[in-house]
């Protein structure tokens, strides 16, 4: 559990970090909270001769609420999200999900940017950001650009971000409606066996809008568009929920691991989604 030797950099602005990335190419990686990358380096599964620490870059920090628009700097920690009073009111699902990530020690270090940019299918924020319809902001050597969270993930650890780009922020509109993040895990600190992010809008007894995303049930987060559509216009009753679950099952592709076989994961995914829908509906 000792990593290979590496050079450590701690630039104090984004341009400095980008220049280092450009200079060292494939041999360089940026590190945010370090809770994914550092263990991989210690296992020598990731070889990073040049490690660029983003901790000193103030421009990547801070939570901004501008009317209905929320921007989270890439280096905002899970702990900062949990402690932020405005977010708890505007986007309760964000706090609800952050509280289910790892443990307090990890949440004090783990960042939004690292969580979404790493492309680890076990991470909770990617699915949540897809549910929220968030936009990821990345900056490369020449220009900045925006990528939709729903277009960002290509395969496990493969994303639309180029190697010479740094994810600087995520932004999204505070959603209307009822929200819920439900996660089953084996223990504190574990990734999800199955997790569901659900946002529902409601007029009277009818669902007028639905967004559903699932976590750790495929090699990428799964925004289950058809599952959401299955709820729209319904009363989110038993039949509608079954239809949503069936649509979700079409979209996920779990694999067997120590958390259990595929049949169990599919079953659990359905249960967790049903619970998230019920909770979100009760809050809508």
């Amino acid at each position: 559990m000792i990593p290979a030797a590496f050079e450590y950099y701690r630039p104090d602005d984004l341009q400095g970090a980008l220049a280092l990335l450009h200079e060292h190419g494939d041999e360089a990686r940026v590190v945010a909270g370090g809770h994914s990358l550092i263990p991989m380096m210690k296992l020598r599964m990731a070889e990073v001769p040049h490690l660029i620490d983003l901790q000193a870059i103030d421009a990547l920090r801070g939570i901004t609420v501008d009317g209905n628009r929320i921007t989270l700097g890439a280096m905002v920690t899970q702990e900062e999200i949990i402690a932020h009073e405005g977010l708890a009111t505007l986007v309760p699902i964000l706090r609800e999900a952050a509280l289910q990530i790892a443990d307090p020690q990890v949440r004090a270090m783990g960042t939004v940017g690292g969580n979404v940019a790493n492309g680890d299918p076990g991470n909770d924020m990617p699915g949540l950001m897809q549910c929220l319809g968030a936009t990821f902001h990345v900056t490369g050597p020449d220009a900045a650009r925006e990528i939709e969270a729903r277009d960002f993930y290509e395969a496990a650890y493969m994303t639309a971000r180029e190697d010479d780009e740094i994810l600087t922020a995520v932004s999204f509109d505070a959603p209307n409606g009822g929200q819920s993040y439900q996660k089953q895990k084996r223990k504190i600190g574990d990734y999800a066996t199955a997790a569901a992010a659900v946002i529902l809008t409601r007029e009277g007894e009818h669902c007028t809008g639905a967004s559903i995303a699932m976590t750790n049930l495929s090699d990428v987060p799964v925004w289950a568009e058809a599952a959401g559509e299955a709820l729209i216009g319904t009363d989110c009753g038993e039949d509608a929920v079954i239809a949503a679950i069936n649509a979700m099952q079409e979209a996920i592709d779990p694999t067997e691991d120590n958390r259990g076989p595929v049949a169990f994961k599919r079953h659990t995914a359905g249960i967790i989604l049903a619970r998230a829908i019920a909770r979100a509906w009760s809050r809508a």
Binding site: Q184, R186, T193, R259, G260, P261, F264, H267, T268
Partner: peptide, 8 residues
Amino acid sequence: HDHWRIWK
């Protein structure tokens, strides 16, 4: 008796 074995 982890989750999946109880489930099974």
